[in-house]
Nucleic acid binder design. Structure first.
Lengths: 208, 208
DNA sequence: CAAAAAGATTGAATGAGTTCAATTTTTAAG
DNA sequence: CTTAAAAATTGAACTCATTCAATCTTTTTG
């Protein structure tokens, strides 16, 4: 009556996700075999596939957890942002980027992004895409908020501008994970330069 | 002495690339087996791997040919662009987008992009990335040119702005190929809206 | 509590990409 | 022209991701 079955299910799901995340970190995505993940999680290979549609799904699940944290961290900045567009963007984007490598390697990001592009209809890819949309909304919300405070000129399409900032930071993050030699600081510097024209131009003169 | 070996090699390479491109278009990337590609190209499976490191490489090779064409088409617009930033961007981006589905399916794009992210060090992925860089340069060049003509205000970082336009159109193209229901027109409309704030603000007042 | 139904697990079998030692073909040397 | 060296080709064997029919466990019904 306690739902033994449901309990077992949740527990197995947790064990599989943890085993996979550990193995991906330890040996990399490609070298981690389903057989090994299943063994560490103390289930059979067949059971693994009962919980996740394929190998990629479980990686995207791990990445999704990470993005959830990034979203929560970003919320604190959007809730009480710095006064100027430049500072606010630097703070939010820095928050995103700094958080990105805490739990995941560049290789894990690359694989997750590749999967979300290649199999956009799989459940976890949908979830990943949805999280991306929420990140984008967060940036747009930041710009809209600054507009309400008169830090952004009236008449500007805050949502359109926000989407552009997001697409830019997202695209550059892809470049970042593609290049093993690129540092977080280099990434931030490039994005800051790219953002500057738009950030400056939409700012209200007195606040510039 | 005529280099029989070199000739045979070039011929086999051409046959393999053509066989693969045909098969990808006919049955899709996943359903095209290396065995089938090799058979159509009249070589063995082993020989296929002598010419391409893996299945993805040959798709990226096909896509790269396509991007070369897009670059050439874009050049005609950059060489003599429309007068305003808005019109010039619309023309160039329209050129890019319209060309994208002539030879390749959304599925082929998705797979190629996924590979170029996941295995950035493979020879053809490097090439694809380099082509992306040239597309980005093309957009930046367009903005710089308009600045020389005084259609863009002096003092604006034309390269930074150009990179932002490019990253935005590229990111939205990814969204486009991820969504089978999205049309080219819808894509263009969204990107136009996103570009508008920056495009308007960097334009010289008299030309707006 | 017994038995049937529903839900999960299992691991051997399948299939496709990839490798590599043996073989064949081309080129260079004598 | 012969022969050794270099370069390419070949396909059977290998590795994994994935599937599915048989089996086991939990829940529900009577």
């Amino acid at each position: 009556m306690t739902g033994l079955r449901a309990k077992q299910k949740a527990d197995r799901n947790r064990r599989i996700l943890q085993a996979a995340t550990e193995l991906f970190r330890e040996v990399g995505y490609d070298s981690a075999r389903i057989e090994d993940i299943a063994e560490r999680a103390e289930v059979s290979v067949g059971t693994f596939y009962n919980y996740y549609q394929n190998k990629g799904d479980i990686l995207v699940a791990a990445v999704s957890m990470e993005v959830e944290e990034v979203l929560a961290a970003g919320k604190t900045i959007v809730d009480s942002p710095p006064d100027t567009v430049g500072e606010a963007l630097t703070a939010l984007i820095g928050q995103y980027y700094d958080h990105s490598l805490v739990y995941l390697s560049k290789e894990m990001w690359r694989t997750a992004m590749a999967i979300s592009i290649q199999q956009p209809e799989s459940p976890f890819s949908r979830h990943y895409t949805e999280l991306d949309g929420r990140l984008c909304d967060q940036v747009s919300t930041l710009i809209s908020k600054l507009q309400l405070r008169s830090a952004v000129m009236p008449g500007i399409d805050a949502v359109g501008a926000g989407q552009m900032f997001f697409n830019n930071l997202n695209m550059m993050f892809i470049e970042f994970v593609k290049d093993e030699t690129m540092t977080l600081d280099a990434l931030k510097e490039i994005v800051a330069r790219q953002n500057r024209p738009l950030a400056t131009l939409i700012s209200s003169p007195k606040i510039q």
